[in-house]
Nucleic acid binder design. Structure first.
Lengths: 212, 212
DNA sequence: CTGCCCATGTAAATCGTTACATGATTAC
DNA sequence: GTAATCATGTAACGATTTACATGGGCAG
């Protein structure tokens, strides 16, 4: 049910086509809720029949682009959703950590490769999120500009800051995942030095990390 | 497809019934991949027809508990999965951050309530994860003991450490989410002091956080 | 005129949730 | 004996992925 509101939210800043939304979802400000065309297009049609958005194709457009705009009803429904008290967090489903849990019977090399992929994956995400944060800070974010254009002048600093915090969450997440992977990689490296083959190594207790 | 391997993984440590797995998934070491009974039971049956696990009900058991054990084939398939190179990370779907993104048109009070729920939610997760970490460290973790019982003596320190790292990932995630929420809450508090009603506030640039 | 990107979809299959059903066991 | 918990499921629905289809525009 969140795809619906993610679409609605992005359209509440700037009217857009399904294709454009799909692009934003993949990389830009929308690296928060990814979805495929086959899910986006039907959902936009459903939003239209609900009367939450209005879609229009420009008469001369050969590409048949359908541009959607949020209706007042849609804006109210979006607000209802973001403010809802019953925000049950989604169930935890952390495939990477599950893998790590059961990689203990694999070779240190397999574990290392896995962690390097993890680190690199979040490295890319970090880059995107940092870039987005920067463009919010220096005012080059198109989406933020569109958003501010629809805001009261007195609210603009507030809106800017909220956007920044949201994006900063993605930065922090990526930083955490990278550090987690690197800490384990470092330990694997030092453990390897101690037990070159695969056996031995005196039993040591897992120490706490630096800060809590 | 990950539920299948999560089940397989947990069974590779200790044979268990579907009900038991459901419990572990909800709180204990399994706060990594939650699933409901209606998904767990059919999946276990499918794993059985695949020959990856063997299920048996003890003759005298009035409760009709079906205890599943991983077969050698199942163990090989699990290993194949955890070591697979094509570990595409799942698409990002972060409903909380999407909400934050579009909460900028709501009252600071609504935002505050939202963030407090976020903080409290991860506070509970942090407690569970810390408890699990602690029980791995002090050797009171039953699941770890079962796991070590099936491991070579020389590998035990390594296995212990890997389990700890996996669980530590959940600790770090929860700590990060709590800090994120608290940082925004603190800012809301200070911003409120500056603009008590809802207007004004001199435009300020979003500053970088302490460390990168 | 061939291959690639833009743009919008449909159909089938799989994964996950919600609602419901059933019976036995344990604690009060 | 009644309520909570143990234990296993089925059916229907909703969300998501995979595979496929289609046609216009643009660069070589």
């Amino acid at each position: 049910m969140s795809l619906r509101y993610a679409l609605l939210g992005f359209l509440s800043t700037t009217p857009a086509s399904g294709y454009t939304l799909g692009q934003k979802f993949a990389d830009g400000a929308g690296a928060m809720w990814e979805a495929l065309p086959s899910q986006i297009y039907p959902e936009l049609r459903r939003l239209e029949t609900l009367g939450w958005v209005a879609g229009k194709t420009a008469p001369g457009d050969k590409l048949n682009r359908r541009i959607y705009t949020v209706t007042p009803l849609g804006a109210r429904e979006l607000k209802k959703w973001v403010e809802a008290e019953s925000n049950e967090h989604p169930p935890e489903r952390d495939a990477e950590r599950v893998r790590m849990l059961f990689l203990d019977r694999s070779s240190p090399d397999a574990i290392r490769r896995h962690l390097e992929r993890h680190r690199d994956h979040y490295g890319k995400r970090l880059e995107v999120a940092r870039r987005n944060c920067a463009s919010i800070e220096d005012g080059t974010s198109e989406r933020l500009r569109d958003r501010l254009a629809n805001s009261e002048p007195g609210e603009r600093a507030f809106v800017t800051r909220m956007k920044w915090f949201a994006m900063d969450g993605l930065v922090r997440r990526a930083e955490m995942e990278i550090k987690w992977a690197e800490d384990i990689l470092r330990w694997l490296q030092s453990a390897k030095a101690q037990r070159p083959a695969s056996k031995a190594a005196p039993k040591r207790r897992a120490p706490r990390r630096g800060a809590t």
